[in-house]
Design a binder for these strands. Structure first.
Length: 224
DNA sequence: CGTAAGATTTACT
DNA sequence: GTAAATCTTACGA
């Protein structure tokens, strides 16, 4: 299997990430089931559409890093930066299934609010960020693509006992293990994106067909 | 300089 | 179903 090239455009990278496993530094790992692509200057729905700001600077940097931003002052969302430096495309990680470090994932989700079902642990971009313990401190952290599923790290129980707060995470790197078997992919308009950028004209949401961990669709304002 | 609108989630009516 | 929480950016006065 050819390794994933993050210097490609986000719309090319996004489907390749589905079924892959994102591994955090403290033992929590999430199998990605839903992502969205954002294409910077070409995309009215992108944070980078109107150029570089303090918040989105990471997206303009080199590929293979995490762009983490805060939404509504409360929640964090995580992207994988794509395209060469200077071109700001990225893939938003919208939902996944926790496949390792469940105990720590549950602790973090309970600390952030109520969560009853296993299915909802990482169902939604802000929830996914919570279980992985990602905050603004991780903006710019490297994301490494492992070459083969054989390199998949064995879940290390001792590391799942890390503190819930993990304030000193800094630029702890993330690892992404590509899918080891094909998945059936569906596409459609992005969730919660307003105006034309949230319509079929921009079908840049990608998810694994039928997977229960995919989040619910919600049309953006004026995206009819 | 003030205001409005978000790549959301949770709690309450 | 609707509101609230609360920060960054864009835009109009």
């Amino acid at each position: 299997m050819r390794p994933i090239d993050l210097s490609a455009v986000a719309t090319d990278v996004a489907p390749l990430l589905l079924g892959g496993v994102l591994v955090g530094a403290d033992g929590v790992a999430v199998r990605l089931v839903e992502v969205e692509a954002y294409r910077g200057a070409e995309d009215p729905g992108s944070h980078a559409y109107r150029g570089r700001t303090a918040r989105n600077a990471t997206m303009f940097g080199p590929p293979g890093h995490a762009y983490v931003y805060r939404h509504l002052g409360l929640h964090h969302c995580v992207n994988v930066v794509c395209s060469p430096a200077g071109t700001a495309t990225a893939v938003l990680l919208r939902a996944g299934e926790v496949v390792a470090g469940q105990e720590l994932a549950w602790q973090r989700r309970r600390a952030a609010g109520v969560c009853r079902a296993e299915r909802d642990l990482a169902r939604g971009p802000a929830r996914l960020a919570v279980v992985l313990g990602l905050t603004l401190a991780h903006d710019g952290a490297p994301v490494t693509i492992l070459q083969s599923p054989r390199d998949r790290p064995v879940p290390d129980a001792s590391r799942t006992r890390a503190s819930v707060a993990a304030p000193d995470a800094g630029a702890t790197p993330l690892e992404l293990v590509p899918a080891d078997e094909p998945v059936t992919i569906r596409t459609g308009p992005r969730v919660g994106v307003s105006g034309r950028a949230g319509t079929d004209a921009y079908p840049w949401r990608y998810w694994i067909d039928g997977d229960p961990h995919v989040s619910a669709f919600r049309a953006g304002p004026g995206a009819s």
